[in-house]
Amino acid sequence: MELANIEKLVGKYENAETTLQEEATLRAYFLSDNVAPHLQEYQMMFAYFQTSQDETYTKTIEFKTEKKRNYKWLSVAASIVLLFSVYMGGSLINGGDKTDPLSGMTPQEREQYAQVENALRILSSNLKKGNDAFNNLYTYENTVKKIFKTK
């Protein structure tokens, strides 16, 4: 390519009037070795454009699509668990009174059950007695404190 021609193209290039083909011609000229000294700056520019074209994105593109969906299903699952537990809890409370533990037992077992019940009742009443005794002690101590005002 003649220098005169190149200079004409350079003028157009400066005014941003060149087409892509003309710019390709310029690029080819400026990347070659024999560039006219007064056009050196263009050589630098085109060399830079050329090198920056080579830069690439090296990382792999990730797709994190699952995240959002998981949260949606998590809330659904939580609400189901909640409903289920409320339902089960209600049926336990209501059903607990209806079933009689004595039904479906042999007479022997029934007797044992009564004995155990009795024994537990005695134990509990004895414990209560002990508690009453303690209460008596407390009232005694309180009155003592009142009288002597010790602390």
Binding site: Q43, M44, A47, Y48, Q50
Partner: peptide, 24 residues
């Protein structure tokens, strides 16, 4: 960083290319 320019041109160009980068 500059990547793969073919010849020793690379050295010669490096300063000027850097300059262009800064100007832009």
């Amino acid at each position: 960083k500059e990547k793969d320019t073919s010849l020793d041109k690379k050295l010669e160009y490096r300063d000027s290319v850097d300059q262009v980068h800064r100007l832009i």
